[in-house]
């Protein structure tokens, strides 16, 4: 196993013993579960005893000591969901996946759990798949939801989600439009930028839909790489003063037509972004 960055990020205060849950959350996010070796490492790094860490790890349902599947399916069995048919939904999910609650499918695709309340009782019976809430579940759509989750929900929601809208942007240096009507992503002209990372230099096309993270690029960008963005017209580097609130990488500013600035995170895979239509925080 590779040495684990238990701090998650070098910018955050490191090795503080009172941030145990945050450390465990980072590990859980990275591996999908808490491996034994990593917990031992945490114990050594934070100076806490393994007993304490194990106690916390087994106390919270959010932590798992067993490997989980790529998709997490939770069916609510709280009182409100229960009277509205939660157990039937849970049974149907179990049947579709061929596993019992708490188990993971043999192809490591799905982990199925039942939960006692999600605090969304008005939506009952409710199921949550990969963080997406499905209200008023019925047994007939269980299969559909599970198949959708394999494709990923982000790709599908672009069509229907009201919060997604197209933006037109231009270079923050030369104000030349960055829109490329010849290359469509999500059915809209894409944003064309020149990028470089390592020794590679090429083009990148971003979806102009605010809220969509679909991109295409000349070269495949490895996940977690911090990329340098350049204007294809004036060749100036698009570099802002601020840093991503999610991962700490530099943000890339672009001017939105109609006023304002949109900033996106320069790290591949990070969805950190900031839209400032008044331009006050520039």
């Amino acid at each position: 196993m590779n040495p684990v960055d238990i701090d998650g990020d070098s910018e955050k205060p490191a090795k503080k013993s009172d941030s145990l849950i945050a450390i465990l959350e980072n590990i859980q996010a990275k591996f999908g579960y808490l491996p034994e070796d990593t917990l031992r490492e945490v114990a050594a790094e934070t100076g806490r005893s393994l007993v304490d860490i194990y106690g916390v790890a087994t106390f919270y349902r959010a932590f798992s000591l067993k490997p989980r599947g790529r998709h997490l399916v939770s069916a609510c069995l709280g009182t409100a969901c229960h009277v509205r048919g939660g157990p039937v939904i849970a049974k149907e999910i179990g049947n579709q996946l061929g596993i019992k609650p708490g188990q993971t499918t043999s192809d490591k695709e799905f982990t199925f759990e039942t939960v006692n309340c999600l605090g969304a009782c008005a939506l009952g019976p409710v199921a949550v798949v990969d963080g997406h809430y499905f209200p008023n579940m019925s047994t007939s759509i269980v299969k559909q939801v599970l198949e959708k989750s394999k494709l990923g929900f982000e790709a599908i929601e672009v069509e229907t989600d009201q919060r997604v809208f197209p933006v037109e942007v231009s270079c923050s240096r030369c104000n030349h439009s960055l829109m490329d009507p010849g290359h469509l992503i999500d059915g809209h002209p894409s944003i064309r930028i020149t990028i470089s990372f390592g020794s590679v230099h090429g083009w990148l096309a971003l979806s102009s839909l605010y809220g969509s993270y679909n991109v295409s690029s000349e070269y495949e960008i490895p996940p977690d790489t911090i990329v340098n963005f350049f204007c294809p017209h004036c060749h100036a580097e698009l570099l802002g003063a601020s840093r991503c609130g999610e991962c700490g990488a530099p943000m890339v500013p672009m001017i939105v037509r109609g006023g304002g600035i949109v900033q996106i995170c320069s790290r591949r895979g990070c969805k950190g972004h900031m839209l400032d239509l008044d331009g006050e925080n520039v």
């Binding site: 007993v51 304490d52 194990y54 106690g55 087994t58 106390f59």
Partner: peptide, 25 residues
Amino acid sequence: AKAIGFRGRGERRSLGTPFDIKSEV
């Protein structure tokens, strides 16, 4: 020593060593 401690929660709360293996401490 801190060799044993509580694990889990509610009716699953139990007592023992981490990972149920012999503790080094």
